[in-house]
Design a binder for these strands. Sequence first.
DNA 1: ACTAACTCTACAAAGTCAGTATAGTTTTGG
DNA 2: CCAAAACTATACTGACTTTGTAGAGTTAGT
Lengths: 148, 148
Amino acid sequence: MISQKAKYALRALVALARAHPRSATFIGDIAESQSIPKKFLEQILLDLKRHGLVVSKRGKAGGYALLRPADTISFGQVLRIVDGPIAPLPCLSKMAYRRCEDCRDEGACEVRRVFARVADATRDVLDRTTIADAVAERAPVRLRDAVG
Amino acid sequence: MISQKAKYALRALVALARAHPRSATFIGDIAESQSIPKKFLEQILLDLKRHGLVVSKRGKAGGYALLRPADTISFGQVLRIVDGPIAPLPCLSKMAYRRCEDCRDEGACEVRRVFARVADATRDVLDRTTIADAVAERAPVRLRDAVG
DNA sequence: ACTAACTCTACAAAGTCAGTATAGTTTTGG
DNA sequence: CCAAAACTATACTGACTTTGTAGAGTTAGT
Protein backbone atom coordinates (compact mmCIF):
# COMPACT_ATOMS: atom_id res chain seq x y z
CA MET A 1 0.00 0.00 0.00
CA ILE A 2 1.24 3.43 -0.87
CA SER A 3 0.76 6.10 1.76
CA GLN A 4 -1.96 8.70 1.83
CA LYS A 5 0.82 11.25 1.54
CA ALA A 6 1.97 9.73 -1.75
CA LYS A 7 -1.55 9.79 -3.10
CA TYR A 8 -1.85 13.45 -2.14
CA ALA A 9 1.49 14.26 -3.76
CA LEU A 10 0.55 12.57 -7.01
CA ARG A 11 -2.88 14.16 -7.10
CA ALA A 12 -1.36 17.56 -6.43
CA LEU A 13 1.16 17.14 -9.22
CA VAL A 14 -1.56 16.04 -11.61
CA ALA A 15 -3.53 19.13 -10.62
CA LEU A 16 -0.50 21.34 -11.24
CA ALA A 17 0.07 19.66 -14.59
CA ARG A 18 -3.49 20.42 -15.59
CA ALA A 19 -3.21 24.01 -14.42
CA HIS A 20 -1.81 26.64 -16.71
CA PRO A 21 1.94 26.08 -16.61
CA ARG A 22 2.80 29.80 -16.60
CA SER A 23 0.85 30.89 -13.57
CA ALA A 24 1.25 29.51 -10.07
CA THR A 25 -1.58 27.76 -8.26
CA PHE A 26 -2.45 28.41 -4.61
CA ILE A 27 -1.98 25.56 -2.16
CA GLY A 28 -5.45 26.36 -0.93
CA ASP A 29 -6.95 25.83 -4.36
CA ILE A 30 -5.25 22.48 -4.81
CA ALA A 31 -6.19 21.43 -1.31
CA GLU A 32 -9.82 22.27 -1.89
CA SER A 33 -10.15 20.79 -5.36
CA GLN A 34 -8.40 17.58 -4.34
CA SER A 35 -9.82 17.27 -0.81
CA ILE A 36 -6.41 17.37 0.82
CA PRO A 37 -5.88 18.93 4.29
CA LYS A 38 -4.19 22.20 3.49
CA LYS A 39 -1.48 22.19 6.16
CA PHE A 40 -0.56 18.64 5.26
CA LEU A 41 -0.35 19.54 1.59
CA GLU A 42 1.94 22.43 2.47
CA GLN A 43 4.45 19.98 3.89
CA ILE A 44 4.20 17.71 0.92
CA LEU A 45 4.68 20.48 -1.64
CA LEU A 46 7.58 21.84 0.34
CA ASP A 47 9.20 18.44 0.16
CA LEU A 48 8.59 18.20 -3.57
CA LYS A 49 10.11 21.64 -3.91
CA ARG A 50 13.24 20.65 -2.02
CA HIS A 51 13.57 17.77 -4.45
CA GLY A 52 13.25 20.01 -7.46
CA LEU A 53 9.89 18.91 -8.79
CA VAL A 54 8.02 22.15 -8.24
CA VAL A 55 8.72 25.83 -7.72
CA SER A 56 6.96 28.23 -5.44
CA LYS A 57 6.45 31.92 -5.32
CA ARG A 58 5.87 33.58 -1.98
CA GLY A 59 3.71 36.46 -1.06
CA LYS A 60 0.16 37.41 -1.76
CA ALA A 61 0.14 36.31 -5.40
CA GLY A 62 2.27 33.28 -4.69
CA GLY A 63 1.62 29.64 -5.37
CA TYR A 64 3.11 26.52 -6.82
CA ALA A 65 3.92 25.34 -10.32
CA LEU A 66 5.75 22.42 -11.86
CA LEU A 67 9.45 23.13 -12.26
CA ARG A 68 9.93 20.58 -15.00
CA PRO A 69 7.60 19.46 -17.78
CA ALA A 70 5.04 16.92 -16.61
CA ASP A 71 6.43 14.30 -18.97
CA THR A 72 9.76 14.31 -17.13
CA ILE A 73 8.28 13.59 -13.70
CA SER A 74 7.73 9.88 -13.18
CA PHE A 75 5.52 8.26 -10.60
CA GLY A 76 8.60 6.45 -9.36
CA GLN A 77 10.42 9.68 -8.57
CA VAL A 78 7.49 11.01 -6.62
CA LEU A 79 7.02 7.82 -4.65
CA ARG A 80 10.70 7.66 -3.75
CA ILE A 81 10.60 11.21 -2.44
CA VAL A 82 7.44 10.77 -0.43
CA ASP A 83 7.40 7.11 0.60
CA GLY A 84 11.03 6.13 0.28
CA PRO A 85 12.31 3.09 -1.60
CA ILE A 86 9.92 1.32 -3.94
CA ALA A 87 11.56 -2.10 -3.73
CA PRO A 88 9.70 -4.67 -1.62
CA LEU A 89 12.93 -5.61 0.18
CA PRO A 90 15.72 -3.27 1.28
CA CYS A 91 18.24 -5.56 -0.39
CA LEU A 92 16.48 -4.99 -3.73
CA SER A 93 16.49 -1.20 -3.71
CA LYS A 94 18.72 0.30 -6.36
CA MET A 95 18.53 3.79 -4.86
CA ALA A 96 18.78 2.87 -1.20
CA TYR A 97 20.26 -0.59 -0.93
CA ARG A 98 20.41 -2.04 2.54
CA ARG A 99 21.36 -5.56 3.38
CA CYS A 100 18.70 -7.64 5.11
CA GLU A 101 19.99 -7.99 8.66
CA ASP A 102 19.25 -11.64 9.04
CA CYS A 103 20.15 -12.80 5.55
CA ARG A 104 23.02 -15.25 5.46
CA ASP A 105 23.58 -15.36 1.72
CA GLU A 106 21.86 -12.83 -0.49
CA GLY A 107 22.63 -14.76 -3.64
CA ALA A 108 20.95 -17.87 -2.32
CA CYS A 109 17.91 -16.15 -0.84
CA GLU A 110 14.82 -17.61 -2.49
CA VAL A 111 12.57 -14.85 -1.23
CA ARG A 112 14.86 -12.23 -2.68
CA ARG A 113 14.92 -13.91 -6.06
CA VAL A 114 11.14 -13.91 -6.33
CA PHE A 115 10.75 -10.36 -5.15
CA ALA A 116 13.40 -9.20 -7.56
CA ARG A 117 10.91 -10.01 -10.28
CA VAL A 118 8.23 -8.06 -8.46
CA ALA A 119 10.56 -5.10 -8.08
CA ASP A 120 11.46 -5.13 -11.76
CA ALA A 121 7.83 -5.29 -12.82
CA THR A 122 6.89 -2.48 -10.46
CA ARG A 123 9.73 -0.22 -11.55
CA ASP A 124 8.88 -0.95 -15.14
CA VAL A 125 5.52 0.70 -14.65
CA LEU A 126 6.39 3.42 -12.16
CA ASP A 127 9.57 4.69 -13.76
CA ARG A 128 8.06 4.76 -17.24
CA THR A 129 4.81 6.45 -16.33
CA THR A 130 4.87 10.21 -15.93
CA ILE A 131 2.49 12.79 -14.59
CA ALA A 132 1.84 13.76 -18.20
CA ASP A 133 0.80 10.19 -19.00
CA ALA A 134 -1.59 10.22 -16.08
CA VAL A 135 -3.12 13.48 -17.23
CA ALA A 136 -3.39 12.33 -20.83
CA GLU A 137 -4.74 8.86 -20.20
CA ARG A 138 -8.44 8.82 -20.39
CA ALA A 139 -10.50 5.83 -19.45
CA PRO A 140 -10.19 3.79 -22.62
CA VAL A 141 -13.03 4.73 -24.93
CA ARG A 142 -14.33 1.81 -26.94
CA LEU A 143 -14.97 2.44 -30.58
CA ARG A 144 -18.62 1.47 -30.35
CA ASP A 145 -19.06 4.08 -27.62
CA ALA A 146 -17.24 6.73 -29.56
CA VAL A 147 -19.24 6.01 -32.70
CA GLY A 148 -22.63 5.16 -31.33
CA MET B 1 8.29 -3.10 1.54
CA ILE B 2 7.01 -6.41 2.80
CA SER B 3 7.11 -6.95 6.53
CA GLN B 4 9.71 -8.87 8.45
CA LYS B 5 6.91 -11.21 9.43
CA ALA B 6 6.16 -12.02 5.79
CA LYS B 7 9.81 -12.70 5.12
CA TYR B 8 9.90 -15.05 8.10
CA ALA B 9 6.74 -16.81 6.94
CA LEU B 10 8.09 -17.37 3.45
CA ARG B 11 11.46 -18.54 4.69
CA ALA B 12 9.79 -20.93 7.10
CA LEU B 13 7.61 -22.36 4.34
CA VAL B 14 10.60 -22.76 2.07
CA ALA B 15 12.37 -24.58 4.90
CA LEU B 16 9.37 -26.85 5.40
CA ALA B 17 9.21 -27.53 1.68
CA ARG B 18 12.84 -28.56 1.70
CA ALA B 19 12.34 -30.78 4.75
CA HIS B 20 11.15 -34.32 4.31
CA PRO B 21 7.43 -33.96 3.69
CA ARG B 22 6.47 -37.00 5.80
CA SER B 23 8.04 -35.98 9.08
CA ALA B 24 7.30 -32.83 11.01
CA THR B 25 9.98 -30.19 11.70
CA PHE B 26 10.41 -28.50 15.08
CA ILE B 27 9.75 -24.80 15.28
CA GLY B 28 13.04 -24.56 17.10
CA ASP B 29 14.93 -26.09 14.20
CA ILE B 30 13.36 -23.76 11.66
CA ALA B 31 13.94 -20.78 13.95
CA GLU B 32 17.59 -21.64 14.34
CA SER B 33 18.34 -22.50 10.74
CA GLN B 34 16.56 -19.39 9.47
CA SER B 35 17.58 -17.00 12.27
CA ILE B 36 14.00 -16.25 13.26
CA PRO B 37 13.05 -15.46 16.89
CA LYS B 38 11.39 -18.66 18.02
CA LYS B 39 8.42 -17.21 19.89
CA PHE B 40 7.68 -14.92 16.99
CA LEU B 41 7.84 -17.81 14.56
CA GLU B 42 5.40 -19.73 16.73
CA GLN B 43 2.80 -17.02 16.16
CA ILE B 44 3.44 -16.94 12.46
CA LEU B 45 3.17 -20.69 12.01
CA LEU B 46 0.01 -20.76 14.09
CA ASP B 47 -1.45 -18.18 11.74
CA LEU B 48 -0.43 -20.18 8.69
CA LYS B 49 -1.99 -23.23 10.30
CA ARG B 50 -5.28 -21.45 10.90
CA HIS B 51 -5.27 -20.56 7.22
CA GLY B 52 -4.68 -24.14 6.17
CA LEU B 53 -1.16 -23.90 4.82
CA VAL B 54 0.55 -26.11 7.38
CA VAL B 55 -0.29 -28.79 9.92
CA SER B 56 1.16 -29.31 13.35
CA LYS B 57 1.57 -32.18 15.71
CA ARG B 58 1.75 -31.52 19.42
CA GLY B 59 3.73 -33.24 22.09
CA LYS B 60 7.31 -34.24 22.39
CA ALA B 61 7.73 -35.51 18.84
CA GLY B 62 5.61 -32.71 17.41
CA GLY B 63 6.42 -30.14 14.82
CA TYR B 64 5.18 -28.56 11.63
CA ALA B 65 4.78 -29.73 8.05
CA LEU B 66 3.19 -28.38 4.91
CA LEU B 67 -0.45 -29.34 4.62
CA ARG B 68 -0.57 -28.92 0.85
CA PRO B 69 2.07 -29.60 -1.78
CA ALA B 70 4.56 -26.77 -2.09
CA ASP B 71 3.53 -26.11 -5.67
CA THR B 72 0.02 -25.18 -4.56
CA ILE B 73 1.14 -22.50 -2.10
CA SER B 74 1.72 -19.19 -3.84
CA PHE B 75 3.68 -16.25 -2.52
CA GLY B 76 0.53 -14.20 -2.96
CA GLN B 77 -1.47 -16.39 -0.59
CA VAL B 78 1.18 -16.18 2.08
CA LEU B 79 1.53 -12.42 1.78
CA ARG B 80 -2.22 -11.91 1.99
CA ILE B 81 -2.38 -13.96 5.17
CA VAL B 82 0.55 -12.28 6.85
CA ASP B 83 0.58 -8.73 5.49
CA GLY B 84 -2.96 -8.28 4.22
CA PRO B 85 -3.90 -6.98 0.78
CA ILE B 86 -1.21 -6.87 -1.87
CA ALA B 87 -2.72 -4.08 -3.95
CA PRO B 88 -1.02 -0.67 -3.63
CA LEU B 89 -4.38 1.03 -3.12
CA PRO B 90 -7.37 -0.28 -1.15
CA CYS B 91 -9.60 0.46 -4.14
CA LEU B 92 -7.51 -1.94 -6.24
CA SER B 93 -7.65 -4.94 -3.94
CA LYS B 94 -9.64 -7.84 -5.37
CA MET B 95 -9.73 -9.72 -2.08
CA ALA B 96 -10.37 -6.79 0.24
CA TYR B 97 -11.73 -3.93 -1.82
CA ARG B 98 -12.21 -0.69 0.06
CA ARG B 99 -13.12 2.59 -1.48
CA CYS B 100 -10.58 5.41 -1.06
CA GLU B 101 -12.24 7.77 1.39
CA ASP B 102 -11.40 10.96 -0.41
CA CYS B 103 -11.85 9.77 -3.98
CA ARG B 104 -14.59 11.57 -5.84
CA ASP B 105 -14.74 9.39 -8.93
CA GLU B 106 -12.90 6.10 -8.98
CA GLY B 107 -13.22 5.73 -12.73
CA ALA B 108 -11.59 9.09 -13.34
CA CYS B 109 -8.79 8.70 -10.79
CA GLU B 110 -5.48 9.01 -12.64
CA VAL B 111 -3.51 7.61 -9.73
CA ARG B 112 -5.73 4.56 -9.59
CA ARG B 113 -5.34 3.88 -13.27
CA VAL B 114 -1.56 3.85 -13.07
CA PHE B 115 -1.43 1.73 -9.94
CA ALA B 116 -3.86 -0.74 -11.46
CA ARG B 117 -1.05 -1.64 -13.84
CA VAL B 118 1.34 -2.02 -10.90
CA ALA B 119 -1.15 -4.23 -9.09
CA ASP B 120 -1.62 -6.45 -12.13
CA ALA B 121 2.11 -6.84 -12.66
CA THR B 122 2.68 -7.62 -9.00
CA ARG B 123 -0.10 -10.19 -8.81
CA ASP B 124 1.16 -11.72 -11.99
CA VAL B 125 4.39 -12.62 -10.25
CA LEU B 126 3.15 -13.34 -6.74
CA ASP B 127 0.13 -15.44 -7.60
CA ARG B 128 2.00 -17.51 -10.17
CA THR B 129 5.08 -18.18 -8.08
CA THR B 130 4.86 -20.97 -5.52
CA ILE B 131 7.00 -22.12 -2.66
CA ALA B 132 8.01 -25.05 -4.88
CA ASP B 133 9.24 -22.60 -7.54
CA ALA B 134 11.29 -20.80 -4.94
CA VAL B 135 12.85 -24.03 -3.75
CA ALA B 136 13.54 -25.25 -7.26
CA GLU B 137 14.93 -22.02 -8.66
CA ARG B 138 18.64 -21.96 -8.36
CA ALA B 139 20.69 -18.90 -9.06
CA PRO B 140 20.96 -19.16 -12.84
CA VAL B 141 24.06 -21.18 -13.62
CA ARG B 142 25.84 -20.00 -16.71
CA LEU B 143 27.05 -22.66 -19.06
CA ARG B 144 30.65 -21.59 -18.82
CA ASP B 145 30.49 -21.93 -15.04
CA ALA B 146 28.82 -25.29 -15.17
CA VAL B 147 31.31 -26.54 -17.70
CA GLY B 148 34.50 -24.92 -16.60
C1' DA C 1 5.71 -38.11 35.97
C1' DC C 2 8.75 -35.56 33.45
C1' DT C 3 9.91 -33.12 29.63
C1' DA C 4 9.88 -31.20 25.18
C1' DA C 5 7.00 -29.63 22.01
C1' DC C 6 2.89 -26.83 20.38
C1' DT C 7 -1.13 -23.21 21.82
C1' DC C 8 -2.97 -19.00 23.30
C1' DT C 9 -3.33 -14.45 25.26
C1' DA C 10 -1.41 -10.46 26.86
C1' DC C 11 1.78 -6.99 26.88
C1' DA C 12 5.30 -3.54 25.47
C1' DA C 13 8.95 -0.74 23.23
C1' DA C 14 9.75 1.53 19.09
C1' DG C 15 8.45 3.31 14.97
C1' DT C 16 5.21 5.09 11.39
C1' DC C 17 1.24 7.68 9.68
C1' DA C 18 -1.64 11.41 9.14
C1' DG C 19 -2.28 15.06 10.35
C1' DT C 20 -2.39 19.86 13.90
C1' DA C 21 -0.37 23.71 15.93
C1' DT C 22 2.36 27.54 16.11
C1' DA C 23 5.42 30.80 14.84
C1' DG C 24 7.68 32.84 11.46
C1' DT C 25 8.98 35.17 6.48
C1' DT C 26 7.95 37.22 2.05
C1' DT C 27 5.32 39.77 -1.19
C1' DT C 28 1.63 42.54 -2.85
C1' DG C 29 -2.21 45.77 -2.76
C1' DG C 30 -3.97 49.76 -0.84
C1' DC D 1 3.78 51.81 5.54
C1' DC D 2 1.09 48.05 6.84
C1' DA D 3 -2.08 44.44 6.84
C1' DA D 4 -3.44 40.44 4.51
C1' DA D 5 -2.45 36.47 1.99
C1' DA D 6 0.60 33.18 0.82
C1' DC D 7 4.60 30.20 1.52
C1' DT D 8 8.32 28.17 5.23
C1' DA D 9 9.73 25.60 9.11
C1' DT D 10 9.64 22.99 13.20
C1' DA D 11 7.43 20.64 16.79
C1' DC D 12 4.06 17.90 18.53
C1' DT D 13 0.35 14.38 19.04
C1' DG D 14 -2.92 10.51 18.98
C1' DA D 15 -3.78 6.29 16.77
C1' DC D 16 -1.97 2.49 14.86
C1' DT D 17 1.45 -1.01 13.36
C1' DT D 18 5.49 -3.64 13.82
C1' DT D 19 8.40 -6.73 16.07
C1' DG D 20 8.96 -8.92 19.20
C1' DT D 21 8.69 -11.00 24.85
C1' DA D 22 6.49 -13.26 28.65
C1' DG D 23 4.10 -16.63 30.72
C1' DA D 24 0.68 -19.90 31.51
C1' DG D 25 -1.59 -23.85 29.52
C1' DT D 26 -2.09 -28.31 26.65
C1' DT D 27 -0.47 -32.58 24.45
C1' DA D 28 2.18 -36.57 23.89
C1' DG D 29 6.28 -39.56 23.98
C1' DT D 30 9.58 -42.18 27.33
